[in-house]
Write a protein that binds this DNA or RNA. Structure first.
Lengths: 239, 239
DNA sequence: ACATATTGCGCAATGT
DNA sequence: GACATTGCGCAATATG
């Protein structure tokens, strides 16, 4: 099994299709196929309008589901979600760090570790030639609390390309937007609250200053009248 | 000028290439071209190995910059990042809302704007047939302010796979983390400030209540002593 | 033009 | 199981 880096460097062609998707089309197979690919066929294949001759029923090209055995394991792409992840790399670095709270991705361990499967480049997918400059991504998703995940064994995400997956993603995206709107709203309200409280504080302070002044004046007046009243005053106030 | 929705509805085919990308290839033009497209040509075009016969120098297919009239303007995909966006759709819906805070990608302006470069097939790509389960993503990136982008024509991101790109991404990721940490910190401080101000407010209110009570008592005492003092009081307070 | 800072958005893991 | 949170990256934009 080849090293990832070797595979990447050896790769001279563009890999653009997702091997994991049944809907992916093996371009190489298409190109190498002896079948004459005419324009109409191309339209049907590329645009996905038809897979076989509507009259004869003969498939334009026999498209096999991508074989797992030839899947590149170090690149993952989902055309359904239009998201790409170098997930193998990430997961590699991820699982590598056992004791760490927040895992880091050790590029070396990835490159030097043997391929995790029998995959080779003859897969039905195309990826862009990987440059020597890789972006190392961290493990995706929320970080577990210090005590670790509460439910370590949870149902996996449904496989990409399924209706279930898309449904889940759509719902989650809605939830995320909602949650962030809420957070943003809360933030604004909090700042607004600060403003209100500050204003209120100022007003209270002004009132307080005024009352204090009045009180002092009154007290001084009392002193002018006689010392006996303050005693009664304290007495009254203590009730 | 057509309404966005109309354009979308009229469209019977899937558009998978980004007309705005320099690397996009006009599939329709390719397919409709009378030139016979053989396998070798396809290899060269699709895999971007050659754009012309190495011997004769004759272009395999004269690829014009994508014609706006047939541009798939509502689909965007970038194979380098393996990121796909149905950005035209999003941008369409995006621009469709006129009164919205975030406006306004005018679909017409996109369609009518001249191609931004001398596209070639060097990076031409194919997309898989679109599956029925499609996640519609919005236009990526920050939304322009209501007035529109301040600097519409800005240097593009460096091409992916280059050291420059990775450097930029890494720095941006750092900046993003920093910015979010800052925002989070600010949020916490704001909430803390609310707490402090609330406490302070309560204390001020208590003081105020007490002083008011005292003042009322003193005034009532004054009334018991005689009515002449309040006059002096007002006189003094007015100074 | 360049660099950093912000921000909307999606993914996926985790929380509730 | 459903929905809510959250760390993270991308890319477009904003701000120096």
């Amino acid at each position: 099994s080849k090293k990832v880096s070797t595979i990447l460097q050896d790769s001279q062609v563009q890999f653009d299709l997702d091997p994991l998707l049944e809907n992916s089309v093996d371009i190489r197979q298409l190109l190498n196929n002896s079948t004459q690919v005419n324009d109409a066929t191309l339209v049907n294949i590329i645009l996905g309008e038809k897979t076989a001759d509507p009259v004869t029923g003969v498939p334009f090209i026999e498209l096999q589901p991508a074989q797992d055995s030839v899947l590149p394991t170090f690149k993952e792409f989902d055309f359904m979600t239009n998201q790409e992840q170098t997930s193998k790399i990430s997961e590699a670095g991820w699982s590598a760090s056992e004791g760490e709270e927040y895992s880091t991705c050790d590029i070396e361990s990835i490159v030097n570790s043997p391929s995790q499967s029998e995959h080779d480049v003859t897969s039905s997918t195309l990826t862009p030639p990987t440059s020597p400059f890789e972006i190392v991504r961290g493990r995706p998703g929320r970080k577990p609390s210090a005590a670790g995940p509460l439910r370590p064994n949870r149902k996996k995400q449904p496989p990409k390309g399924t209706e279930e997956y898309v449904d889940k993603r759509v719902r989650n995206n809605l939830a995320v937007r909602k949650s962030r709107d809420k957070a943003k709203k809360k933030q604004q309200e909090t700042e607004q609250r600060v403003h209100e409280l500050s204003t209120e504080n100022e007003n209270l302070q002004k009132k307080l200053d005024l009352l204090t002044k009045e009180l002092n004046v009154l007290k001084s007046l009392f002193i002018n009248v006689g010392a006996s009243l303050p005693t009664k005053f304290d007495e009254i106030m203590s009730r």
